[in-house]
Structure formats: C-alpha cells, structure tokens
Design a binder for these strands. Structure first.
Lengths: 211, 211, 211, 211
DNA sequence: GATGAATGAGGATTCATTCAT
DNA sequence: TATGAATGAATCCTCATTCAT
C-alpha cells in the first residue's frame, strides 16, 4: 500500500502560506517584494548567490536593477530575507506535518519528507540555499536566521529523540541527516523515472531508523 | 580499545604524495605551481571560489596576481586543477586504505574515515571543495574531474556493496554518505574537545552499517 | 572660375544629420551615446583603435570608464557602432550629393569630393576609420557594417560606370580610388596653404576621368 | 603578347637579397634575427602590430618570448627593423627594376609592378606594413625609416616626372598611387582566378599614364 | 515606486619587459 | 644565447549601489 505523502491531512501549501501571510510573518508572494524574493530564491538555487546579479533578479520580475533597492537594502539583504522566509515557512510546515503524524516513527518520516520537499522546491523554493549559501551571509544575518530556525531544529531533535535512532545522539543524527538530504539537491531529480520523493524519504528512514 | 585510524599500516601522507609526485601524476607541492594550488585550495575552502580573488591567491605565495597566469590559464583552471589533484590524491589514499583493511566492514570503515580525513584537510586540503564548488566548474572541467573520480567512486560502491548496508542500493547509500560526510565540514571541528574524527567515523559506520 | 563644393544646393550637414536622427537611423549627437560615439571616432582616428582606451573615451565626455558599458556592450561594439553611424551618414550624404549633380562627370566629381570630405572629417568624423580599422572588427561586425555600406558602394559603381573612366572596370576603379582617397588622410592637411579639398578632388577627377 | 614581369632581366630576389646581406645592409634571413623579422613581418601584416604579441613572434621561430629581447630592444624596435629592412630591400629592387627598363613609360610600369610585388609579399613580406602601421612607430623611428626611404621615393618621383602623367604634379600622383596600390593588399588575391599582378599593374598604368 | 544614467571600487586577464640561472 | 618565472602597469569589463528625475 502506497504510504501517504506529508501533505495528506495537512493544510495545503497554498493555505498555509496564505495564513502565514495573513499573520504578517511571511511576505505576500504576489507583492513586488514577494515576487522578487521568489525570483531571487530560484536564481540563487540555480546559479548560486555570487553568480547571480541583481540585474538578473530585477529582470526576472520585470523591473530595473536600481528599483530593487526600494525593497531591499542590499544584495545580501535579499539573501537574508529569502532565508528568513524559507525558514519561517518550513518551520510552520514542519510543525503541521509532525502534528499530523501519530507514532514517533511516523513523525520522523514526516520530518524527512517535509525537508526533502522543501529542498526540492515542491513546497517553497529556496530551502537548499540555507545550506549551500550559508557562508555568503554575514555573521549578523546568520544569527537572525538562526534565531528563526531554532524551533525548526528543536522539532527535529525531539522527533529524532523520540524515534529509535541508532547512535543515541540526536544532534549528530540530525547533522548527518541534514547533509545527506540537502546534498540530494544536486543529484535527485523528482521528475525522473526512478525513485519518487516519497520513496527516497522511506529509504532514508530505513537507514536512519531501521526496523 | 581505541581502534586504529586509517593511517595505521599505510604509507604516510607525505610518502604517498611523494610517490605520486614521482609518478608525475601529482604536482610537486614545493614547486611554484604546487604552492599556488595549496594556497588556492585553502582559500576556496575558507571563503568559497567566487569570493576568493586571484590577487589573494598570489599574495599567499608571495607573487603578484599577473604571475599566476604563467601557471594557470584562468581562475577556473586553478579550481579545476585543485579538484584534479585532490581527486588523484584521494583516490590513491582510498585505494591504500581499503587494501589495508581485512573485513568488508573494516573496509567500509576505512572508506568513511579516509573521506572524513580528506574533508577535514588532514591528508590534503581541498576535498570539501569538490562538493561545495562543483557548480563553479564549467561542464568541460566537470567531465575532466569526473573521469579522474571514476575509480574513487568505484571503490566506494564495491565497498558498500560488500558491507551489509541496509537499503540494498549502494549508489543511494553512497550519495547519502557523501552528503552527510561533506556537510560535516561546516560543523565538525576536529580540534574540539568533543568527538574525534575516528569516533565520528565509527558513529557514521554504526548508522550506515548497523550491528 | 572656382567650382562649387559638394555642399552647394545640398541640405547642410547639420540639417541632414538632424533629419536622420529624426528618422531614428542615426544616434542623436547630443545624447550620451552620441557624444561617446563622437569622442570615440575622434580618438580612433587620431591614435587607432588598439591604442585608444575606454578610459580615454569616457574621460572625453566626462564620465568614468565603467559607465561606458551602459551604452555599449564592449569596446568593439563602440567601434562597430561608430562605423555603422558613419556609414549611414555617408550614404545619405552621398545620395544627396549625387542627386544634386547634373552630368555623369559632375556626379563622379561629387562622389570624390563627398568621400574626401568624409575622410577628412569635414562632414562626419570617423570615415577614415572604416578603412584603417577594418581588421579590428570581428567577422560578424564586419558583415553588419557591410550590409549598411552596400548602397553606398552601389552609388559609386553606378557613377563610375556612367562616367567615362578608362579601364572599363568600375569595381577596380572604385578600389583604386578608395585606396588613393583614404590614404590622403595621412598626408593631406586641408588647413595647409597648399591644395584645398576641392582642388584635390578636381585633380583626382582629372586622373580617374581624363578630359 | 604577355608583357614581362619586373623580374625579367633582373637579378633574382634571392640573388639580390644575398648580395645585400653580403654588403651588410640587410639581415641574413636565415639568422635568428632574420627569422624573427620575417615572422614578425608576416604577423604584423596579417593581424596588425597592436594585435600581435611578442609571444606569437617568438613561438613562430621556436623560441620563448623572453629571448626576443636578446635580438631587439623592444617590440617597437622589431617593427622599426622590419620597416627598415623592407625599405632597403625595396629600394634596391626598385633601382634594379628601373635600370632594366628602356622607355619612361616602361620605367613607370616597372615601379608600379615592383611596388605591387612588394605589397603582396612576392619579393619580401612586410611592405604593406609601411603604410598600414606607420602610426605605430614613434617619431624617431619614423625619421629613421624615412631617411632610408628617401631614395626610393626619389626614384618614384623622377620616374613619374619622366612619364607623361596627367596633373603635372608628380608628388601628388605618387601619393595617390601609393594609396591605391597599398590598399590593394586588402582586396587583391594574387592566387585568384581573376587578375594577375602583372595585369593589375597594367591597368593601373593605363589610368595613371593613359595612351 | 520606478527609472536609467552614473558611480567607483574591484574583478580577471594581458603582455612587454626583466633577469637570475 | 636561451630559458622561464616573475613583474607591474595597464586593459577591458562587472556590478552593487546611488540618486536626480
């Protein structure tokens, strides 16, 4: 029997985003700022932060490069904002996914799938940037993102602690998992005729929580 | 009882490198070109390829930026050369490490430790660049590195296939391992009072090949 | 009796240029781009393309070198644009000059004087660049200029064909004329107390169309 | 009846050069310096002085760029030397050609053909450089070449004065001729199935000295 | 909010030239 | 004489950022 994707029983990505926008904790993706963030996320993911120019980001949403600075203080501010938005969204999504899972093992599965979907842009573009471009951020910006990320990681640690993972060190397990999952961005093609994302999640689960 | 590091029974890094240099398959690290490669590897690892200037690389070995182009055709050529050298060296080291291990499980452990040592620059600086800066390479350069890397990966796949890894898909296991290990570059501090590299390797082994 | 210069009965250079600018086929010489083109033409003529730096061109119009690339894609693009503008203008001027001449011989005289005036910058600066810097242009750029030049040369060939030139090969005559006239750029000084441009044209006419 | 080329009755190019080398007024083309001069002349003609690097010249004769400066003081010195050699050789050849012609008209024909052969590299490569790269030379170097060229031009002027050229101004006629002939370098292909060099010379003669 | 021209510091790269070996 | 590593100034070009309109 095909297991359910994370989405089952959850609010849809669109609904979730809408409610976060309503709460004022996320930028409206249809606003100029929101469209810039999306374009930037896509480009940073595709070509990397350093190789993306503000001109390209601006062109992507049909404005000129100078106009970007009405919305962001600097190029780094764009990156930081992207990361913040991604973090906020991923955290909400993760909370919702875990809440909808019954057993400890299901919860871990939900976390893995949730992060995989984020990494591969199914839910929100830009998650892989968090790992790949971390060093492009100034120390201050890193702190601001880390603060937002805290709870996201807390959920992960609790979930790993609850599941029966070998090694007995949830922090280490989490780090290995983060590396393994985020690297999948460079080789896993969800469109392919091979593994689906859900299948990949199950394989990973089998390794990090056997039985 | 403290298990042995990979190095036990192997030729020393220095000896290995010397013999590879003698074979003409590696650049003499004391030659101008070799010193440039080392400096570049260090800087690329520290700050990333895009954020490193040729001026900095040149300054690191005490020459002027223009002089670099006596040894390399372009900045990208430096990156490509670094990756090639790292690959050649890591391959030789890996072959030697695996050859010195008796059981399948020991061989896997040797692979993991070997790669961890490479990632953390204990053996050769620059291995983590292979993952982190892969996209900074042109398609042609990528191919040239991949050709050299082929056997390295072949050893990995055979070793994983021989060990009793869950999942039954050595290629997938390898990819997850590569992600998990290379990401350790951004959080693991070998100097720290925490885990040692050998201990980290054993933990990873426990997860990817339980029992 | 002093014969008339080409200008007689023609629209003035200023009027002609103004109408071409209005048609959108020439750049407004008062626009930033136009001023850059003029400065570049003057410098290329004076010192040659290779020995002229973009800094100098920029300085000539009071901007910094980097700002040039808002208007042109590359230094070669500047050269190409100069040649295109010069060609368009010279073509219009030539057409107008020939149209105002009554006899075949007068038409040839008009062509010669028109090209001489162009070469010596009396009408438009930069014509001599067309010959002197032709090899500095990429093959693609050469084609784009040649397309614009086609009609200019067609007028020449028809005019030579109509006049009673010895040799009976208008194409050859044109080539010899072009060489002879454009070389005058390096020795003829219109300001001098010697020959005037009009006199020079008449001498050339006497040689290439005797009687 | 096919008219004779200049060469008829003259010493062969090879003999002429040999005797000039013997006199010490020309560099032995088989000496290192001579081979450098030939390579440079060919490259300057092909790509222009500014676009030719000393590396290319050196490579052409199989030495390294640094070694060039054992033979020449600077890149400009190479250009100057090329022009001097070309001038000396052309002068000797011209004298010999004119001496072998009987009538004034024949003498003019010999001059034209002689210069055409020089321009198209049949006798010595590099003559077209004299016109095309004149501005690449410093004032001092220009003077040194002009001194050598004096007699060459004197022969031209006397010959033109002796022939029955229209216009009555040998200096002007010479200048127009020089422009017309040297420009042929950019369009005339001696190999082609069209005009031969001798035929071209006869056409030119017909224009500049009718009847 | 948007424009687009301009900035200006900095980037990689070129290349004639030098000089110890 | 030849080498080849190094120089160092200059080159074209890039790009985040500013600002008057």
């Amino acid at each position: 029997m095909q297991r359910d994707a994370v989405g089952a029983g959850m609010v849809s990505p669109r609904q979730l985003m809408a409610s976060l926008v309503a709460e004022g904790v996320l930028t409206d993706p249809d606003s100029p700022r929101g469209r810039l963030l999306n374009a930037a996320a896509r480009l940073f993911e595709q070509k990397g932060f350093a190789r993306t120019t503000v001109r390209e980001i601006a062109a992507e949403v049909g404005i000129l490069s100078g106009s970007i600075f009405h919305h962001f203080a600097s190029k780094e501010d764009i990156l930081c904002s992207v990361m913040q938005e991604v973090t906020v969204y991923a955290r909400a999504r993760m909370a919702s996914a875990v809440a909808g899972a019954d057993s400890p093992r299901e919860r871990l599965r939900a976390c893995i799938l949730c992060e995989l979907e984020a990494i591969h842009g199914l839910a929100v573009p830009g998650f892989s940037i968090l790992v790949a471009e971390w060093r492009s951020l100034s120390a201050d910006s890193q702190r601001s993102v880390l603060r937002l990320r805290d709870e996201y990681e807390r959920i992960w640690l609790e979930t790993i602690g609850g599941a029966d993972c070998p090694g007995g060190d949830p922090a280490l397990t989490r780090r290995l998992l983060l590396g393994a999952l985020s690297h999948s961005h460079s080789w896993f093609k969800p469109k392919g005729r091979g593994l689906s994302l859900v299948e990949l999640a199950d394989r990973v689960l089998l390794i990090f929580a056997p039985q």
